[in-house]
Write a protein that binds this DNA or RNA. Sequence first.
DNA 1: ACGATATACCTCGCCTGTCAAGGTATCTCA
DNA 2: TGAGATACCTTGACAGGCGAGGTATATCGT
Lengths: 110, 110
Amino acid sequence: MSITGDLIRGHTDTIILAQLIKEDSYGYQINKAILDKTEGRYELKEATLYTAFRRLESAGLISSYWGDENTGARRRYYRITPAGRNAFTQMKNEWEEAKLTIEKLVEVQE
Amino acid sequence: MSITGDLIRGHTDTIILAQLIKEDSYGYQINKAILDKTEGRYELKEATLYTAFRRLESAGLISSYWGDENTGARRRYYRITPAGRNAFTQMKNEWEEAKLTIEKLVEVQE
DNA sequence: ACGATATACCTCGCCTGTCAAGGTATCTCA
DNA sequence: TGAGATACCTTGACAGGCGAGGTATATCGT
């Protein structure tokens, strides 16, 4: 497990957008990529993942389309929008700031 | 504002415990210390702060007692328990791990 | 004398994101 | 044929953050 829900909370959207910057992808693949990148230490729960997709699409940060595989299970692909790229940059900045702040606050002063 | 609720979520308890490691303190002072340490960029909302105190006390990580000031408003002081110190160490480790994980995941791969 | 501001505490109820649990359908391989 | 992987989805419970509201005391300027 390692990372609990509340520690990751608020990063889910950023993490998903990050996976879509380079190329379009679909739910299952995105989660596999996350699992790989973290060497098995973290994966999004499916319910969380799909909730996030809905949220991001409503917000106009991603758009979706069905893949045209003619074999295997159908896939819904997601594409990051220009607004999504802006939002991602913003979120990364916020994370950098938050990281420094948290770092400062969990440090025990001598 | 800078840090939104969901980014800080899950760190509230750790932050409060960190302020109590060195010495006992009370709500208002803890929040002021946080404000100082972050140069005004962050403070816990009062409702969040007091909710956290209740939670931490229920969990046995802090204990509380009324100060004996004979002037000014009454103060409820909080003291970290041995279990609280252990929990704090654990929480800091989890944060270190989470930080590395998030860092890896919000990075855009070339 | 009086209002504003700071100190200091507290609770209620809403909102939002996570996730356990359940479901569907297709393909591969033993 | 049946287990396991791929791939999607929804519902409802739960928990933490926080806006809004409340109480009481002390200080300081006018």
